[in-house]
Simulated assay, not measured.
Amino acid sequence: MRFPPTVFKALGHPTRLAILGWLKDPGSFPPQDRPAEEVGVCLKHIQARAEVSQSTASQFMATLQRADLVTCTRIGQWSHYQRDEDEIARVSALIGTSL
């Protein structure tokens, strides 16, 4: 099984790896208008937890999305992110560790 280099690039930054860990428990983020378990976590909450600018948070999430590790749902002007558990399971099996 081969994965594109984008997967390993995405996993190669400690903050992106931390974000994937945080998204395991979307309920740990502040409440949103719609439950994070259903629509994902709003970028503004990810940004706040990561303590980075909005543009940096957007770049982190775009990298994770290009690697198919997260999916994005747009609700109005906001982007909400969820882990792609199927893809993460495939990557985890390949590298021999859980993400």
Rank of each mutant, 00 (worst) to 15 (best):
L43N: 02
Q47E: 08
G21C: 04
I19V: 15
V70E: 01
T73F: 06
V41F: 08
I46Q: 01
G21I: 04
R16M: 05
D86Q: 15
R83P: 00
T71R: 15
Y81I: 07
L64M: 09
S58L: 13
P35L: 10
L11H: 08
G27W: 02
D25L: 13
G76W: 10
E37S: 14
G27L: 07
Q32H: 06
A36G: 02
I46T: 00
T71C: 08
V91F: 08
I19A: 09
G12K: 02
G76R: 07
I95P: 07
S58V: 10
A89S: 13
D86F: 14
S92L: 07
L64E: 05
T97A: 15
L43M: 11
Q65T: 12
D68V: 11
D86A: 15
Q54T: 12
V91A: 04
S79V: 00
I88S: 04
T56C: 05
R49A: 09
Q32T: 03
I19P: 06
I75Q: 06
A48D: 12
K44C: 09
P31N: 06
E37V: 12
M61G: 04
L94Y: 15
Q54I: 11
D86W: 13
P30D: 01
Q65I: 00
T56D: 04
V70C: 09
L11D: 03
I88G: 02
V70G: 01
V52W: 06
S98G: 09
F60M: 14
T97W: 07
